[in-house]
């Protein structure tokens, strides 16, 4: 599974990153790199079956701290 994830990301880099580097599109390379790092991190965490905390839990805690959330019955 880990090997599949890594090979998949290498393929994505070959498809999209190489043309950006050839065209010297710096801003696009930065955007691509940010999401590449994020996706690779999440992908590897998924492959290693690591539980990632949900961002929705953070929103839930924030709105409950503000006191604006509907109650579950």
């Amino acid at each position: 599974m880990i090997l599949i994830v890594i090979v998949g990301f290498i393929i994505i880099a070959l498809i999209d990153l190489i043309p950006l580097i050839k065209q010297r599109k710096t801003l696009a390379i930065v955007a691509f790199s940010v999401f590449f790092a994020l996706a690779l991190t999440y992908g590897l965490l998924n492959a290693f079956d690591v539980e990632v905390p949900s961002i929705m839990k953070a929103w839930k805690s924030f709105f409950e701290w503000l006191g604006i959330a509907y109650k579950v019955e």
Partner: peptide, 26 residues
């Protein structure tokens, strides 16, 4: 946000990110 017009080359990586990010939500 990044000030680029090369959206075609970032669509795939954003899509893949969404695939791995989605299961972490709930």
């Amino acid at each position: 946000l990044f000030g680029t017009t090369q959206y075609k080359n970032i669509a795939l990586i954003i899509g893949v990110f969404v695939v791995f990010y989605a299961p972490t939500l709930y």
